[in-house]
């Protein structure tokens, strides 16, 4: 569905992308991850044909440089800013973009309903929350039922429920045989929403592989905070025995330990099985830039 060959892009003296090549088959989801300035947005914008680039990008057999309009007919794009005209209502926005693609107003209504904004279709975009605006931008991207969805930081600004909904929507697209290229900072989401992952560092590909490998990557560690009234010491000793590689320690009223994405549930299960009640749980996500720096060091 998407082929990127030796993609390069320079901004004055800065090499934003250098020799990036990959393929995204039909019915697969590829997540592009990388720290700020790694080249994610430049890659995404190149695929959509919003910037000029070196190399070759082919979408569904169409060369993006030679025929950008035809290529964009096959692409649904969600920009990082989810920027839409603030003076239009939700319904007007969807209808406007549907008309640009020669689609009937009925399709615009369907997509607004699909992203759960039917109840606010008369509300102006300027009055929407950031999360709602992002959902509307997603509806715009879905209008033409394109074979390739290109989503730049789609989870940014979404609450937990909306992120779960986004995962479902992406899974539905994959089930329907559509391909999805997305960039994200949320490393822990990647194994749940993507089949494959591509890590960029300073414009170069430093890691490609199955997304589930990220679950085991030592770089992707969060800090798990547990409040255990009266039995903190018991919990610490139990966790140190059960997970010696994850040293639990006390921090005020909390028991804190570093965990990978797949280990959170097993920590809770270990405590509950031992009869130690957990009254509160908090997760401090790994800082994306730091985790990615470590990830690129681990998998050069």
């Amino acid at each position: 569905m998407l082929q990127v060959v030796e993609l390069g892009k320079s901004y004055r003296n800065v090499r934003a992308l250098d020799g990036v090549s990959f393929a995204l088959p039909r019915g697969r989801v590829l997540a592009v991850v990388g720290a700020n300035g790694a080249g994610k947005s430049t890659l995404i914008k190149s695929v959509v044909g919003l910037i000029r680039f070196e190399g070759r990008i082919v979408v569904d057999g169409i060369d993006v440089s030679r025929n950008p309009k035809a290529a964009r007919r096959r692409i649904g794009y969600l920009s990082q800013e989810a920027a839409l005209h603030p003076d239009l209502t939700v319904a007007e926005t969807a209808s406007f973009y549907a008309a640009l693609r020669g689609l009937p107003p009925q399709r615009a209504r369907e997509c607004v309903e699909l992203v759960g904004l039917g109840a606010v279709s008369d509300r102006r975009v300027g009055a929407l929350s950031g999360g709602m605006r992002r959902r509307l931008a997603l509806a715009v991207a879905l209008l033409a039922d394109p074979p390739l969805l290109v989503l730049d930081e789609p989870a940014s600004g979404l609450d937990v429920a909306a992120r779960v909904e986004l995962r479902r929507l992406i899974a539905d697209q994959r089930s329907a045989g559509k391909s999805v290229l997305l960039s994200t900072h949320w490393l822990e989401d990647v194994p749940h929403i993507a089949d494959d992952v591509l890590v960029l560092d300073r414009g170069r590909v430093v890691f490609t592989g199955p997304a589930r490998e990220l679950l085991e990557a030592p770089a992707i560690e969060s800090r798990l905070y547990l409040r255990i009234n009266g039995r903190s010491q018991d919990a610490i000793e139990l966790l140190r025995r059960a997970m010696p590689q994850r040293p639990a320690e006390r921090l005020g009223d909390w028991v804190v330990l570093p965990v990978r994405a797949a280990e959170k549930a097993s920590v809770l299960h270990t405590l509950v099985a031992a009869g130690i009640p957990v009254s509160d749980v908090r997760v401090e996500e790994a800082p994306a830039d730091e985790a990615l720096r470590r990830l690129t060091e681990v998998d050069p």
Partner: peptide, 14 residues
């Protein structure tokens, strides 16, 4: 400045 230029130009228009 609003960012809507990218949204517009991501549609099939030149």
């Amino acid at each position: 400045e609003q960012g809507t230029l990218a949204t517009l130009l991501s549609q099939p228009i030149g």
